[in-house]
């Protein structure tokens, strides 16, 4: 039983990270039906910036929490700017172009960001300074660390704040209006270009936080770390119903838990014919099954609000 609890804790932590990154995908998709494949790279840049700041500040004798907060505070604006620049340069000129054209620019942007990061931070995996000492707590025989708790709390807080903003503020209403029909929204006096840019910026800011959390959790940062994470988060977004905010959260958490339980139990369930080597297959099969039986994703709707 303690093993099971432990696997659920593992899955929840992983899922929370997926969810936060997935929100970036789903917001952008919801508003302009674009898969921003370069979103994973923004997560990586966030982690890298934080890495540099922490390395610079760590010997200064500041309390560890302050160091990490400053690092995150530096990573967020950089990533936000990056998100804005990406939208401005690579995606905005392509509104109204065939649907796949922005996909290719996204791939281009992704290659560019990766190799810039490689030029700046080098090729080696960077040991992310462990300024915050990991402490484990006992929960029914399982261990949960302070970093895991922070990830869960911060993710939940960010998701709640985002939901409040989208559903309770005037700007959120503008976002939803733009998502439903950009022309009419424009006629209603909404500056859709600004709304779309803001969507990218918000998504990038959350990606920065996700990057810092991931790097801190795993203790490692590398210029290739963005792509695999982005892929999983994208799956999570689709699983929940792309374009749907609660869907992305649900999809992320679900994917994380499915992966953890899959890796943990698939071997025993199949008499070791399949092992943890099929962990990713397990996640993809769940995704495919869900989509085959519910083609719009778990919470997605064909018609209706998307934000």
């Amino acid at each position: 039983m303690d093993i099971f609890i432990q696997q659920v804790i593992n899955g929840l932590t992983l899922g929370a990270v997926y969810a936060v990154v997935a929100l970036g995908y789903t917001m952008v998709y919801g508003i302009i039906q674009l898969i921003n494949f370069a979103h994973g790279e923004v997560v990586m840049i966030g982690a890298m910036i934080a890495f540099s700041v922490i390395v610079a500040l760590a010997p200064g004798g500041l309390p560890p929490l302050v160091v990490v907060l400053i690092a995150t505070g530096c990573a967020i604006p950089v990533c936000m700017f990056l998100g804005y620049a990406m939208e401005r340069v690579a995606y905005r000129p392509l509104r109204g172009a065939p649907r796949l054209a922005p996909l290719i620019t996204a791939i281009g942007v992704s290659i560019i960001l990766q190799h810039f990061a490689m030029m700046i931070w080098g090729r080696s995996p960077l040991p992310f300074p462990q300024v915050i000492t990991t402490v484990g707590y006992d929960v029914g025989g399982a261990t949960i660390t302070n970093v895991q708790i922070v990830i869960l709390v911060v993710s939940t807080a960010m998701m709640t704040a985002l939901a409040l903003m989208v559903y309770r503020t005037k700007f959120g209403a503008a976002m939803r209006a733009t998502a439903q029909n950009p022309q009419i929204a424009g006629l209603m006096g909404i500056d859709t270009d600004r709304v779309i840019a803001a969507t990218f910026v918000i998504g990038a800011g959350m990606a920065a936080v996700a990057g810092v959390m991931v790097a801190n959790y795993y203790g490692i940062a590398h210029y290739t770390m963005g792509a695999p994470l982005g892929l999983k988060a994208f799956c999570a977004a689709v699983l929940g119903g792309i374009g749907n905010l609660p869907g992305a959260m649900l999809g992320g958490i679900l994917l994380g838990v499915v992966e953890a339980l899959g890796a943990g139990y698939i071997g025993d369930l199949t008499g070791n014919w399949f092992g943890s080597n099929y962990q990713d297959v397990f996640a993809f099969i769940v995704l495919i099954l869900v989509l085959v039986f519910r083609p719009q994703g778990l919470l997605g709707e064909r018609v209706g609000e998307r934000a």
Binding site: A97, A101, P102, I104, T105, G108, I111, I112, H115, M119
Partner: peptide, 21 residues
């Protein structure tokens, strides 16, 4: 590095200038 950077920029530029391919 340059090779990959040029490649990335080429993808972006071509698509922006000729979105239909």
């Amino acid at each position: 590095v340059i090779r990959m950077l040029i490649f990335g920029f080429a993808l972006v530029l071509i698509m922006i200038l000729r979105p239909g391919g």
